[in-house]
Simulated assay, not measured.
Amino acid sequence: MKKLLLATTLLALSAGFASANVVRLATEGAYPPFNLIDDKGEVGGFEREFGDEICKRAALECTWSTNEWDSIIPNLQSGNYDVIVAGMSITDERKKVIDFTQDYYPPTPSAFVAASADADCKTGVVSAQVSTIQAAHVAETGMSLLEFPTPDETVAAVRNGEALCVFADSDYLRPLVNESNGALMFVGEPVSIGGGVGMGLRQSDQELKGKLDAAITAMKADGTLNTMIEKYFGPEGLKY
């Protein structure tokens, strides 16, 4: 009887979720212009506008929350939310544990930034955010890696001399370099890693993935996504 009641309860909960079409979106809130916390204490940035538009087109009621980057995949797997919208690059390694929609931001090169134009990043400490494709690349190439929980800490490490260079998405670093008045600069050559940015979701949520993919396809087709990218990333932003 207990098993029957439990099964009935689970079925009712599942039906309620499906009928309500409520999807819980999670982001980091610390990676502008992809995502940030605005002056009102709310999620903002490119991915907030993008996510809201996706939910509108897919006829989904969506809520937003933030989660620290290092635990953002485990908490998706644990059911604390349904979709990651956090500047996450699509990689084969991540696809072993979660699924992705098609990319909504094209593959963008990663770059090194230092406080001196003659900095040789291969010979010094390189800072990167933990659990990112940049941190993995630094480790794999044998450079000295110093990891931090948040992206702003990786840049601060260069400013205060803890690291010689920071390695991150060029789109994240570009405004910081432009606003530094010459204190920060790109060094070396850009590095292409990752397969574009996608929405992460549980491998079992294929129906939801289909709805999200259809909405992304429509936004690409009618130019809405390109307009949104230029709004937040400027003319340098990669487009479809």
Rank of each mutant, 00 (worst) to 15 (best):
M199C: 01
P32T: 13
G44T: 13
T108I: 10
T132Q: 07
L208R: 00
A215Y: 00
Q77T: 11
L164S: 15
G195C: 05
P106V: 03
E153L: 15
A114F: 09
L13V: 14
D222F: 02
I133H: 02
W64Y: 13
A215F: 00
D82G: 00
K40G: 07
A115D: 15
I98S: 01
D99G: 02
V83H: 01
C121T: 08
C62T: 03
M219S: 07
A168V: 04
I98M: 04
N35M: 10
K56I: 08
F167W: 06
E230V: 13
G29C: 13
Y172F: 15
K211Q: 07
F34G: 08
Y105D: 07
D99V: 00
N181R: 06
P33R: 05
M199P: 00
E93M: 05
E153F: 05
L13Y: 08
T132P: 01
K231G: 08
I37D: 12
F233V: 10
S78V: 03
V138S: 03
A86T: 04
Y104N: 02
A136I: 07
G87L: 05
V22L: 15
D169F: 06
G16R: 09
A18G: 09
P33M: 14
E236Y: 05
M219Q: 07
L238V: 09
A157C: 11
T108W: 06
